[in-house]
């Protein structure tokens, strides 16, 4: 089976600093994969490079069996970190979810009532239908994260790239986000998340990629989450956790 994401010898430079160095990795179709690694390991940059948001210096990216370009990226939904936007924006939860439908609606065409009705079904899926009209600035961090998730769902993609979907949410929200991800997997979608909390990797994910500028290890979580791999990915900083 073709991997959902296949990256070969990817290099990305920010000025003179090399942030991804010959990174190669694969993420299997129909599974939930975590990308783990320390701060500054280039995890977010990796997903941004896959989405064409940062220029790549060299290397090859395949999405769902096709070279990554404008066309193949239409099958991919990207969920930025919640902190990437200013939530003091005049929009309701429903408005933000409807943004996931904009490409469907067509550029230059207005959002119609039926689009809002459709957007509402995605808010229902993340359990926020009753907050549809609430200004996003008045939502809690966890609710904002679920609004982002609903917007990603609205894109009806085959592959979902999520930057820290579990960051800064409470335990209940974390559980409900996990349920949604599992539901997506059950319908044959592929989910790849940048993830920070090493404690939960084995419980939440099928596969993991330990990453630091390049791939340290990848495969089923049990095989990746070994002290030796983590030591190599995190360096001396993980000594306490590993012991």
């Amino acid at each position: 089976m073709t991997p959902a994401l296949c990256v070969t010898n990817l290099c990305v430079d920010y000025g003179t600093k090399r942030v991804l160095d010959n990174a190669s990795l694969e993420a299997a179709s129909g599974r939930i994969t975590a990308i783990i690694g320390p701060n500054g390991a280039g995890k977010s940059t990796l997903i941004k490079a896959v989405m064409g948001l940062v220029p790549i210096s060299s290397g090859d990216i395949q999405l769902l069996g096709h070279k990554a370009d404008r066309r193949s990226r239409k099958q991919v939904a990207y969920m930025p970190q919640r902190t990437a936007v200013d939530w003091d924006f005049p929009a309701s939860a429903l408005d933000v979810v409807a943004m996931g439908l904009y490409a469907d609606i067509g550029w230059g065409r207005p959002v119609r009532r039926r689009h809002l009705t459709e957007a509402l079904t995605y808010l229902e899926k993340v359990g926020l239908a009753d907050l549809a009209k609430r200004p996003i600035g008045q939502l809690s961090g966890g609710q904002q994260q679920r609004v982002f998730l609903a917007r990603a769902l609205a894109q009806k993609a085959d592959l979902y790239l999520m930057d820290e979907p579990f960051a800064g949410v409470d335990a209940a929200t974390e559980a409900s986000i996990l349920d949604i991800l599992k539901g997506m997997k059950a319908t044959g979608r592929t989910v790849i998340c940048v993830h920070h909390d090493l404690q939960t990797v084995t419980d939440y994910f099928d596969d993991a990629i330990a990453f630091n500028i390049r791939t340290i290890a990848s495969g089923p979580v049990k095989e990746v989450m070994t002290p030796e791999h983590l030591q190599r990915a995190y360096g001396g900083r993980l000594l306490m956790v590993a012991s």
């Binding site: 941004k48 990207y78 924006f89 490409a103």
Partner: peptide
């Protein structure tokens, strides 16, 4: 009025806007 949707997306979430190919 014609580009209201696109301008909104640009102002709220530029990263997402770029990821959508705009």
């Amino acid at each position: 009025l014609i580009l209201r949707k696109e301008l909104t997306l640009l102002c709220f979430d530029p990263i997402f806007t770029a990821a959508r190919g705009l």
